[in-house]
C-alpha cells in the first residue's frame, strides 16, 4: 500500500513537477484556443456543403467527412508531421497539430451541425424567406441559432473530445500537459506527475461531462 502511494501520489514529486506541468497546461489551453474555433468554423462549412443543392459539392463534402471520421486522429497527425516532410513540407509540431485537428474536428463538428440544421423545420426557412430575408441571412439569423440550440449537448460533448485529443500532441513532441507530465515521469521514475496531469484534466472536464449528462437526461424526459 505504501509502495502504491509512493508510486502514484508522491506529493514531493508532484510539487517538483508542478511548474513543468503548469507550462504544459498553458500549451494545452493554447492548442484548444486554436483548434476549437477552427474546428467549429470548418464544421460549419462542412455542414453547409453536405446540405448544398449542388450534388457534386454535397458528395464531395460527405466523402471528406466520412474519410476523416474513418482515419484515427493519431494516424492523421503522424502523417502530417512525419509524412509530409518527405514531400518537402516540414511543419512545426504546433502547425501539424493544428492542420491534423482541423481536418478531424471539421468532420465531427460538421456531422453535428448538419444534424442540427436538419432538425430545424423547413417552415422556418420558408417563413424567413417570405419576410424578405436572403438565403444566407435566413441561415445565419433564423436557422443556425435554432440548430445550435438543438445540438448544444453534442457540440459540448465533441468539444470535450477535442480537449482530450490535444494530448495526442505529445506524440509529436509538442510540450503540452501530457508531454510535460511524461517528461517528469521519465526523470523521476514515478507515475505521480501523470496522476497530477490526470487530476488537472479531471478538474477541467468533469463539470462539462456532468453538464452533458444533465442535458441528455432533460431531453430524454
Amino acid at each position: 500500500m505504501d509502495q502504491l502511494i509512493e508510486q502514484f501520489f508522491n506529493i514531493e514529486i508532484m510539487i517538483a513537477a508542478w511548474p513543468t506541468i503548469l507550462r504544459g497546461l498553458w500549451m494545452t489551453l493554447a492548442i484548444c484556443a486554436v483548434v476549437i474555433p477552427m474546428g467549429l468554423l470548418g464544421g460549419l462549412f462542412a455542414a453547409l456543403g453536405m446540405l448544398s443543392q449542388n450534388r457534386a459539392l454535397r458528395w464531395a463534402t460527405v466523402g471528406f467527412v466520412d474519410f476523416f471520421r474513418a482515419i484515427p486522429p493519431l494516424v492523421l497527425l503522424i502523417f502530417v508531421y512525419s509524412g509530409l516532410p518527405f514531400a518537402g513540407l516540414r511543419l512545426s509540431p504546433f502547425a501539424a497539430v493544428a492542420i491534423a485537428f482541423l481536418l478531424n474536428n471539421s468532420a465531427y463538428y460538421g456531422e453535428i451541425f448538419r444534424a442540427g440544421i436538419g432538425s430545424v423545420g423547413t417552415g422556418q426557412t420558408e417563413a424567413a424567406r417570405s419576410t424578405g430575408l436572403g438565403a444566407s441571412q435566413t441561415m445565419a439569423y433564423v436557422v443556425l441559432p435554432q440548430a445550435v440550440r438543438n445540438v448544444l449537448p453534442d457540440l459540448i460533448s465533441n468539444t470535450i473530445e477535442v480537449v482530450k485529443l490535444t494530448s495526442l500532441a505529445s506524440v509529436v513532441s509538442l510540450a503540452e500537459m501530457l508531454y510535460a507530465a511524461d517528461m517528469a515521469r521519465s526523470v523521476t521514475y514515478s507515475a505521480s506527475p501523470l496522476v497530477l496531469a490526470a487530476g488537472i484534466y479531471l478538474v477541467i472536464l468533469w463539470p462539462l461531462v456532468r453538464l452533458v449528462s444533465r442535458f441528455e437526461r432533460r431531453i430524454a424526459h
Binding site: 470535450i160 482530450k164 494530448s167 506524440v171 511524461d182 461531462v209
Partner: peptide
C-alpha cells in the same frame, strides 16, 4: 464520469508506466 473525462492517452501511459512499479 472519470473515464469519459480523462484523455485515453493519459490513462494508457498512467497504467503502462505506473502499474509495474506497483
Amino acid at each position: 464520469d472519470v473515464f469519459r473525462a480523462l484523455p485515453p492517452l493519459v490513462v494508457i501511459l498512467l497504467v503502462f508506466f505506473g502499474l509495474p512499479n506497483a
